[in-house]
Amino acid sequence: MADMVETTASGERSATAQSIRIGFLLAGLAALAVAPLFLYPVFLMKLLCFALFACAFNLLIGYTGLLSFGHAAFFGGAAYFTAHAVKEWHLTPELGILVGVLGAALLGLVIGFFAIRRQGIYFAMITLALAQMFYFFCLQAEFTKGEDGIQGVPRGHFLGLLDLSTSTNMYYFTLAVFLVGLLVIWRFVNSPFGMILKSIRENEQRAVSLGYSVQYYKLGAFVMSAALAGLAGGTKALVFQFATLTDVTWQMSGEVILMTLLGGIGTLIGPVFGAGLVVTLQHYLATSDFPVTIVTGVVFMACVLLFRRGLVGEFYASRLGRRLGFAYRR
């Protein structure tokens, strides 16, 4: 559907882009490090969780062109798994999150196994339907506690040492998870596996004729994306200390699509911006009585009609962006 951003081959310009990137990266890290001094930590943690979720989603659509309409299953599913593991099995937070990630990966394997049998809009509809099936499962299953959800999840001690019950500690823990997640994505995209994914997206027939098992690679990307969405979901369960049905609904799947679309499908950093915007918007609308759904819907339509490349993608494709040496290939 969209393409990743890459620097142009010619030296000087892309060098500019590269140094701008590094500059942004450092500035971003510095900003994240001091952010809790200025902003409400729970808000920041929520933002980081959703940003990671959007990046995980983007891994699939941006690098394989597959639009999943069911990613809430992995995000919300992992939240349940982690919450259950920490609360009922008394696991430490890192192991609890690991349970969430593995659970989401397994769920991704099952849903992906069915969904990759079709492409394009069918793929989207199948993932939506299967995620809805998982929603009904969560609605009826014992361990999810139905409409109430799993409440009062303890944050515990990281590695048994660092107390996460203070919001400062929890914030830096979440930030670390977020950065690890981004690093994994970055490594994955630039690995041989990621390169083959790219070649499949560009020309599936050619990849097949080169002897690559396309389905296997697509499934691999799907599971990877699900696992990372699980990382985000599991962490969110610890941040808020609960896991509820909200995170497995189709609305949540739609929300992550919006974040990615708004920020820029296929750009590494776009989904982070998109998530930031959407979470901030929700934060402010929450205090008014104006419904978030309407705003979400309108922004969705506007994105599709007016700036399909997303904010970051449009910047890269703009005159200024190109001058600085960014490239946005469609």
Binding site: G254, P291, T293, G297, F300, M301
Partner: peptide, 8 residues
Amino acid sequence: GLALTIEG
């Protein structure tokens, strides 16, 4: 997006 808007 249209569906969300109408329903919202």
